[in-house]
Design a protein around this nucleic acid. Structure first.
Length: 478
RNA sequence: UCCUCAGUAGCUCAGUUGGUUAGAGCAUCUGACUGUUAAUCAGAGGGUCCCCCGUUCAAGUCGGGGCUGAGGAGCCA
């Protein structure tokens, strides 16, 4: 058996003084031909290994370089030096994998996030990305724990779909037809009947419609999986492949939906704080250092942990779309013509408007409800006023829309009428409509972009830095 | 997709009005060092100035096109 090691996180926590242990990991720095800072990814903390002089031959000493992997047996002792409580007095050091320091791109110095993006395969070995991806893991785990504890069924909705009804964005086509000389129909269009699935297929843009089918049997379900958008979006908030969480609940109305979404967001933030405090403290410090570079006016008022705590301790503001428009029209910013885009009832709010509401007016997460039906999807439940639908978006400071959800239209007649108005092919959607024909119930759900949540919790500012291998236009390395 | 900015050593950047052999800090390498914390001290090596075309006696520097990256907008999660 090879692996009888103790992880550095456990070693530092238990500090078994006087015992001999085996650790394995990667060299962060090697100082004074004597002190090895070793990291194994279990924590941001390194363990200091002390190699007494004469113990190692010259050759082994030279091979202990930044990035090399080592297997070390040694005795756990109190550290006489400052900066750490305990250290490992090495009895034996074995080089598992050499790392040519002249070629290894990670140097014991600060690197830019842009550079680290180009070596995404190695960035897990840095403090920042170690912390970010451990927090990402904690959040993902918390998502499952939250819903599992509430009796939700984790439903695996398909990645390949033929449904393009939602119109959530441009889609990636899935096909086995040849690029050159694809079979054509008489009218010159491509004959997808000869394709693998016998029809035109795409990567999913949302699991919601299938999620609704599950909710109509299980009551409460959630999805958590990859989602694809072929939009040519080049921003710090968009990915072509991202992870989305989509709960769908039978016997829920819009208010139930909002309550669940708010409870959910607070739960996973709290989970990360409870279980990854060390990583968040590191990210908090990192953000504070970065803020120091900025001019006073652009600095945020709260530190990362303060911000998260603030979100936990305060109710999200809940306003209707109509109230939001009133606030914007009566705002000093509007009167001073600070907005690039005009405001009137019926507009789809621009990011500048959302940012004003969240960052300037309320200074906390805001849930906006009851949007005009013409700017929202066909499946949202129509309100009695005939103008609005039971939609809700949660807007978060710094990242904008983090949740989009609604109560769904459960009334068959109203739903089909709306679909016809919006040119949604009801015939192809027979399976979706069946849920409204047989035992239809009031139900609701929402979608949460997981990476945007990770951005919010880690304080990172570019979405490409919170997913291990980002898929963006013109970039599919790794 | 649009707008703005950027691309010079492994990394972060400077490079004046177009003018000799393109610089700095860090990293790396060599040497010194038994309590260092991104160690320190001394020395050394390291360049397709993103690519193509053009202007010019002369281009890292000016112009055009392209590629890539970043920020903002749109689309959205």
């Amino acid at each position: 058996m090879f692996n009888s090691r103790i992880k550095i996180k456990a070693l530092l926590e238990t500090a078994p003084l006087g015992t001999e242990v085996t650790i394995m990991g990667w060299v962060r720095t090697f100082r004074n031909n004597q002190f090895i800072a070793l990291n194994d990814g279990s924590t941001n903390q390194n363990i200091q290994v002390v190699a007494s002089l004469g113990m190692l031959n010259e050759d082994t000493l030279k091979r202990i370089t930044t990035g090399a992997s080592l297997k070390i047996r040694g005795e756990v002792v109190e550290s006489p030096g400052k900066g750490q409580q305990i250290e490992l007095k090495a009895n034996s050091i074995e080089i598992l994998g050499d790392s040519d320091a002249e070629k290894y791109p990670l140097q014991p110095k600060k690197h830019s996030l842009e550079f680290l993006r180009e070596i995404a395969h190695l960035r897990f070995r840095t403090n920042t990305f170690g912390a970010v991806f451990r927090v990402r893991h904690a959040l993902a785990f918390a998502v499952h724990k939250f819903f599992n504890d509430k009796g939700f069924v984790y439903l695996h909705t398909p990645i390949v779909t033929s449904s393009d009804a939602e119109g959530a964005g441009e889609m990636f086509r899935v096909t086995t037809l040849p690029m050159e000389g694809a079979p054509k129909k008489e009218d010159g269009s491509i004959d997808f009947e000869q394709d693998f699935f016998g029809r035109s297929t795409n990567l999913t843009v949302s699991g919601q419609l299938e999620g609704e089918l599950g909710a109509m049997g299980f009551g409460d379900i959630y999805t958590f999986g990859p989602t694809f958008r072929a939009e040519n979006s080049n921003t710090t908030r968009h990915l072509a492949e991202f992870w989305m969480i989509e709960p769908e609940m039978a016997f829920h109305d819009l208010e139930d939906n909002m309550n669940l979404a708010e409870e959910f967001i607070k739960y996973i933030i709290d989970y990360a704080i409870e279980n990854n405090r060390e990583d968040l403290e590191f990210l908090d410090q990192r953000l504070a250092d970065e803020e120091k570079q900025k001019p006073q006016a652009e600095r945020s008022e709260l530190g990362l942990l303060e911000k998260l705590q603030f979100v936990l301790n305060n109710q999200f503001e809940r306003i209707t779309y109509t109230e939001a428009i009133d606030i914007l029209i009566n705002s000093p910013a509007y009167k001073k013509k600070k907005f690039k885009y005009d405001v009137s009832w019926g507009i789809d709010m621009q990011s500048e408007h959302e940012r004003y509401l969240v960052e300037k007016h309320f200074k906390k997460p805001v849930i906006v409800t009851n949007y005009p039906k013409d700017i929202k999807a066909f499946y949202m439940r129509q309100n009695d006023d005939g103008k609005t639908v039971a939609a809700m978006d949660i807007l978060a400071p710094g990242i904008g829309e983090i949740v989009g959800g609604s109560q769904r239209e459960e009334r068959y007649d109203l739903l089909t009428k709306r679909m016809e108005e919006m040119h949604i092919p009801t015939k192809e959607m027979w399976w979706y409509l069946d849920t409204r024909r047989f035992g239809s119930v009031p139900h609701a759900g929402f979608g949460l972009g997981f990476e945007r949540m990770v951005l919010f919790v880690t304080g990172m500012t570019n979405i490409r830095d919170v997913i291990p291998f980002a898929r963006t236009p013109k970039n599919c390395e790794f």
